[in-house]
Amino acid sequence: MSGVKQMATRQRVSKESSFGRLRYFLDRAILNIRQNLFINLVTVLTISLGLLIISLFLLLLVNLEGVAHEWTRQVQVTVYLEKEPAAQNMTQLLARIKMLQQTDNVKYIKKDDALKRFRDRLKGQESLMEGVTADLLPASIEITLKRGSRDSESVEAFVRQLKQIPGITEVQYGEEWVRRLTTFMQFSRFVVTLIGGFLLISVLFIVSNTIKLIVYARKDELEILSLVGATRFFIKAPFLIEGIIQGFLGSLLALMLLTASYYTFLYNAADFLSLSPTSTGIKFLPPSYLAGIVCTGILLGFIGSLTSLKRFISY
């Protein structure tokens, strides 16, 4: 090995630092992009269109998740109490319910409050309330559950735990509705994952094949570099940097198109549908998702170049 190294290094006139090498690779990558502008533009456009499709899908997903979250907020467990307990007992009871892992919020509804609420609901039909007094209505405790505990299995487990607390006998939670909602959510998540998976695979396939074509178009360059003694790293580095630049530019373009599409069509669509975009209307992607899209673009360019190079650098 030392003999081989000596043969090679004898001819080296000036040694450059690692920074100098990085600068060289970066310059070479930028020069390659300028010299092969059209084909690089095609790659950037392919990456950006692929990422735009994924971004639109994410936008849909985020908004559907929002809607689903709103629906599951309605999952509520109500404990009915035969008698209003003394204040100290009530505090203890509420504290025990709050201690349960799934509990998000607990609200005690006194008999008087229950009557008031009942009256409010029957506004305009006050005649129906004749003879109804607070004693007829039970006091209750309304419990909302944490986000991850709103499926039928978790709710059932929660109810079982509630019933073990002394003083609690009757619990209601709209069993059938929770079960249907859980089934619908599970099915939706499965479909979304399936479509998302197919989408991601398709984008990966298209992008990697486009990059493969670029590398193939420059296979002579790879061959010549290897003939004049370039190491695998030396050959790969500018191509990989080129891939990263393509991915970065592609993702930026995708985000620009996404933002433009959102404000041109979707933001107004929320108005059209009488939904306020500032409250529950169509939301834009959160910053973490946007950063994720840029990272995915960079990764797509890098991995696409890396896998394509493997095929063409044989020695």
Binding site: V4, M7, T231, Y315
Partner: peptide, 29 residues
């Protein structure tokens, strides 16, 4: 004096730096 058949990829790259190669089809970029 270096056995080419026992060299790894990196060593081959290094030894190629002391060998110039010319082809009939030039292989220019």
């Amino acid at each position: 004096g270096q056995n080419l058949t026992r060299m790894n990829r990196h060593q081959i790259a290094l030894i190629r730096r002391s060998i110039g190669v010319v082809f009939q089809d030039f292989k220019l970029l």
